[in-house]
């Protein structure tokens, strides 16, 4: 199972539409969840609308919360999405076997059996979560909380019976060609990671759509795309490897 969890506090303003990018993700079997973080002020009608649209296109959930609720929200969303993904797959099977009818329409004893299977699979199936962090200037004061929330999420994922790993990205990168930076490669343990976000380039640009597309690529090829990687190489190394020890 694959998920992207986008954490942002506002609107994208560069490049491809993030809604379209999320739709691409879903087409590749990757569900996109979105958390809008706000501490002071508001996320704005436009921002809230975009957050909702991205999640809808990506087949996922969306929430707008303050930093104190961030960890709990991320954990809950990830868990719910796992269950929903399994449920959708199981629902398809139910329709196959019973010729139509969703979970709600099943009689109690059958429903009980189906949910038992869903719960079992939700706990044991393997799971990959890519965290995509908006690191534009306004997000800077929230990044410490974001990092804590990611560590907390790892703790929950570790408790699962199934294999679970996560990767962390932030955007924008340094140059204008670098839409996204890999901070932590696929891992099942963050204990050795001292500081997730190294020196960040705080710019106004928020290329949410392009960053999402890159992460989809990463899911498929394990890299952020050849043409970019040599250009952004040095910067990337500093950002992701210079500041943490594995």
């Amino acid at each position: 199972m694959k998920q992207i969890l986008l954490i942002t506090d506002g609107c994208s303003n560069v490049g491809e539409s993030p809604v379209m990018a999320a739709a691409h993700a879903l087409a590749e079997g990757i569900v996109v969840n979105v958390v809008g973080v706000l501490d002071y002020g508001t996320i704005g009608e436009l921002g809230a609308f975009e957050i909702q649209e991205i999640a809808k296109a990506g087949g996922g959930l969306h929430r707008i919360v303050g930093t104190p609720q961030l960890a709990q929200t991320m954990q809950m969303m990830t868990r719910k999405t796992v269950v929903q993904t399994i449920q959708q797959a199981v629902n398809k099977e139910i329709q196959h076997i019973l010729g139509g009818g969703s979970l709600e329409e099943l009689p109690p004893d059958k429903r009980s059996q189906v949910v038992e299977v869903v719960d079992e699979l939700a706990e044991t199936s393997s799971l990959e979560v890519a965290l995509l962090i908006d690191a534009s200037a306004s997000m800077k004061p929230k990044l410490a909380a974001v990092e804590e929330a990611i560590r907390d999420l790892m703790l929950s994922l570790k408790a699962r019976a199934g294999a679970s790993r996560l990767a962390v990205f932030h955007f924008p990168g340094r140059g204008s060609e670098e839409e996204v930076v890999l901070d932590v490669n696929w891992t099942s343990d963050l204990d050795g990671v001292r500081s997730m976000f190294g020196r960040l380039q705080m710019k106004g640009a928020t290329p949410t759509g392009p960053a999402l597309l890159k992460v989809i690529e990463f899911f498929q090829y394990g890299t952020l795309g050849n043409n970019q990687s040599w250009k952004g190489h040095t910067g990337q190394e500093e950002g992701m490897l210079g500041d943490y020890v594995v």
Partner: peptide, 13 residues
């Protein structure tokens, strides 16, 4: 939610 509730019911049964 039917699924969440059924999960709870399964434990109780």
């Amino acid at each position: 939610d039917a699924l969440d509730l059924q999960s709870e019911i399964n434990v109780l049964s």
